[in-house]
Design a protein around this nucleic acid. Structure first.
Length: 792
DNA sequence: GGACTCCGTATACC
DNA sequence: ACGGGTATACGGAGTCC
């Protein structure tokens, strides 16, 4: 089992593997803080359907017929990377001789499968992994952050603009060393040279930065080139280079170009934060400052500066700017302390460099484990099947309104449990290792969870918390892997079976709850929010009740209480708010907290929800009147009503698609074009709507937020009032028509009174079924029966 | 010209 | 190189009366 997870080669202390030549790699070994290297030959390979495509290929190569009858039955190996690429071109030509339509790229070749990362190939072939026998603390990690000037009149600093430049570089490490380099008394060229010399002197194993791939590294590289500074910071004296020059695609789809530095690892804490949040969904944005607050390591005297005032600070308060830069580097280090340990642990298992593990998705990780074992056992591998998954999680809503008390009960690891219980595995996975891997990963996670609960201090707790979290995401993605179109071992039927089994278990749980006189409010995939029966008085009763439910579910299915709440506002599927016993309010759902909504709308809805959860109708009314007056009197700031969108297409793509009628004009692009700004894909624009009527086209009446002048406010008041009413309308179903209009009205002629107003709770199930009944004109059934069933 | 549907895009939940 | 389906909201364009 160890071999499955950790690879068959137990060599220790490897801290990096990078290409040395086109037929060898260099391993960097660390022992007693000394780095040694060793160069190892390796044999590039690809998979092929039939040896006939390599017939008469003149250069040295081996073709090995593999066991089993999966699609790719031959493994072809070569003596050098270049010769492997030669062979790929050879196969491409051979294939095209008889192909119905000509293929130009190896990626479209259905008869060949190749992974173009030489290091991943080498590690898979040899069963080696990085960091064996090491602790996270053994790594020497260095953090960097830079501050740059921006030419007057421009919003973003641009390394290609001669007037813009790097003025401060802060460096910190995980041993308490801190250093600032700045350009007050030296040229930028001298500053860059000092930086390069420092990196070589400190000789870090890992270089960390927040958005280092998207900003710091490309910026430094560009300036080094412009100033003729040799950025030879690789441990073999080489300069940083893009990971795979063949794939310019990555740049477009990822929005950044990953770099490599020979003998070292690069960690972008922005990427770590993003992948942490895909499962957690608790971060408002991915800025370093916000992350520091979220994890609670912001220092008391931390310096905050406005990003668009950096140039001003450099000219007027350079010391403050330097402290700010240093604080950024420090926080990057602390963020990495939190998020990197799980990447470190995964790197001990996976056939990739540390920096690759940090970048790759969960699917690539699972597949690498499968492939490594298939190579070891010399077994043929499948190709992805074509099709789609047809079933997903079960989502339903039974009641709207405000209800309570509420228990959120979860089926623990629903999909992984089903896969193990029912032995659901890809049909092409002939070695039977898919479930063994899953089983083992679950064991490791449970172990981490136990250690987390037994932790004696906060640090230890966080360490194991992160660890079990990393495994949780990997474990949960085994199900996603089954339905992933590009996965070699995908199996849509298997994915559907898992989803269906999940739906059935949720259905059983719902039945148990209603049978016990509990009231189910809403269900999503693996969890249920419900009002426990009146006989349940306290937390202990709730625990007992859940245990009783679990006993009636299939064995191996465990329930856990995810949360307890005083009240719940149920709006629509996946859209609700919770009032905790500590008074805290959590709002969920895109229609209640979407980032596309104007800030004032979000604020207004938040206020209303908090007031509704506390039965304070006066406050709801006051909020409405207050926002109405503020909009009407131009008293909101542009920050409150501006909308911010990402420009996902380039100027040319947008113009062409509009011309061809493939897409509509949209305000964010129009405003960017109109203001003459040039943008990169992924840039954001903030804009607002102008004009004096509601019915006008948005894209013809918009302006950049920066152009808004508080002395001559020209925002579209009727439009923003209409938006306010649209927000209010979300609460329409919670009240009688009369009450709704009394609350959300500015007509205070007779004064507003909340007397006699109450929130309606409705049974959604009942209405939905009646509607469905009308639609399908199915057999008429007495409403009494539906009522009965609903009350069960 | 307003009410309606359709469609693509964006965001969020699990 | 890239996990998945389910769900709501919204702007713009086309269609109908």
């Amino acid at each position: 089992m160890d071999q499955l997870l950790y690879g068959s080669n137990s060599e220790e202390n490897i801290i990096a593997v990078h290409p040395a030549s086109d037929h060898s790699v260099r391993m960097y070994i660390k022992s007693h803080d000394q780095i040694t290297t060793s160069e190892v030959e390796f044999y590039p390979f690809f998979y092929l359907v039939s040896p006939k495509y390599l017939k008469d290929y003149p250069k040295k190569h081996w073709i090995k017929e593999l066991n089993g009858d999966n699609y790719f039955r031959y493994l072809c190996a070569f003596t050098s990377w270049l010769e492997m690429w030669d062979a790929i071109r050879f196969v491409l030509d051979r294939y095209n001789e008889n192909a119905p339509s000509k293929i130009y790229s190896y990626t479209d070749l259905p008869i060949l499968h190749v992974r173009t990362d030489p290091i991943a190939q080498f590690l898979k072939q040899t069963g080696r992994t990085l960091f064996k026998g090491m602790k996270f603390e053994d790594l020497y990690r260095l953090q960097i952050d830079i501050e740059t000037l921006t030419k007057r009149g421009f919003k973003f600093s641009n390394p290609h603009r001669l007037e813009d430049k790097i003025v401060v570089i802060a460096l910190t490490d995980n041993r308490g060393w801190e250093h600032i380099i700045h350009a007050k008394r030296k040229s930028e060229k001298e500053l860059l040279q000092e930086f390069v010399d420092l990196i070589r002197e400190k000789d870090p194993d890992v270089i960390e930065g927040h958005n280092i791939f998207g900003f710091d590294l490309p910026y430094i590289l560009t300036r080094c080139e412009m100033m003729s500074v040799d950025m030879d910071i690789g441990r073999d004296g080489s300069t940083p280079h893009p990971v795979d020059t063949r794939l310019s695609y990555a740049e477009r789809s990822l929005g950044y170009t990953p770099y490599e530095i020979a003998g070292r690892q690069i960690i972008d804490t922005l990427l770590l934060l993003q992948s942490y949040d895909t499962a957690n969904r608790s971060l408002e944005n991915y800025s370093l400052k916000n992350a520091a607050k979220h994890f609670g390591f912001t220092k008391k005297d931390r310096v905050y500066l406005q990003p668009d005032r950096i140039t001003w600070h450099w000219e007027n308060e350079p010391d403050k700017l330097m402290r700010y830069c240093l604080d950024d580097a420090r926080e990057t280090g602390m963020l990495s302390d939190h998020l990197s340990p799980c990447v470190f642990l995964l790197t001990q298992m996976l056939p990739f460099n540390y920096s690759s593990v940090a970048r790759l998705g969960t699917s690539a990780k699972i597949e690498s484990l499968l492939l490594r074992e298939y190579i070891r056992q010399k077994h043929s591998i499948p190709k992805p099947e074509i099709g789609t998954q047809t079933l997903g999680g079960y989502t339903d809503i039974f009641h709207t309104g405000v209800l309570g008390p509420v228990v959120d009960v979860d089926v623990e690891s629903l999909y992984p449990s089903i896969m193990l219980n029912e032995k659901i595995t890809p049909k092409t996975e002939k070695l039977g290792i898919f479930l063994s891997l899953l089983d083992e990963l679950i064991k490791i996670r449970l172990d981490a969870k136990r250690k987390m609960e037994a932790a004696s201090n906060q640090n230890e707790y966080l360490k194991f918390e992160n660890l079990q979290h990393a495994f949780k995401t990997l474990i949960n993605s085994f199900y996603g892997y089954l339905g992933y179109s590009k996965a070699l071992f995908n199996d849509y039927k298997a994915a559907d079976s898992v989803a269906q089994a999940g739906q059935i278990i949720l259905g059983q749980l719902i039945s148990r709850i209603t049978e016990s006189e509990g009231k189910v409010i809403e269900v999503d995939t693996d969890g249920v929010y419900f009002v426990p029966p009146k006989t349940v008085l306290d937390e202990k009763d709730e625990v007992d009740l859940i245990e009783a439910f679990a006993a009636q579910l299939p064995s191996g299915i465990k329930l856990q209480i995810n949360g307890r709440y005083e009240r719940m506002l149920s709006y629509k599927k996946k859209n609700y708010a919770l009032l905790g016993y500590d008074g805290r309010v959590i709002v969920k759902g895109s229609s209640l907290i979407s980032r596309t909504m104007e800030k004032y709308g979000r604020d207004f809805i938040k206020l209303c929800i908090e007031a509704l959860l506390n039965n304070d109708f006066d406050k709801v009314h006051d909020s409405y009147v207050s926002y109405h007056k503020s909009i009407d009197g131009h008293r909101l700031s542009v920050k409150d009503f501006a909308r911010t969108e990402t420009l996902r297409d380039s100027y040319d793509d947008y113009i062409n698609e509009v011309k061809e009628g493939k897409r509509n004009r949209s305000a964010c692009y129009e405003v960017a074009i109109q203001s003459g700004m040039s943008w990169k894909v992924g840039d954001k624009v903030s804009y607002y709507f102008t004009g004096a009527e509601t019915g006008v086209k948005g894209f013809e009446n918009c302006k950049l937020a920066d152009e808004w002048d508080p002395n001559f406010p020209d925002e579209n008041v009727p439009y923003y009032l209409k938006r306010l009413d649209e927000c209010a309308k979300k609460f329409e179903d919670f009240f009688s028509e009369k009450d709704f209009h009394a609350i959300f009205s500015i007509d205070d002629l007779f004064g507003f009174s909340s007397q006699g107003i109450y929130i309606l709770t409705k049974s959604v199930k009942l209405e939905a079924r009646e509607a469905q009944e009308e639609e399908t004109e199915s057999i008429h059934v007495e409403p009494k029966i539906w009522l009965d069933e609903d009350m069960l």
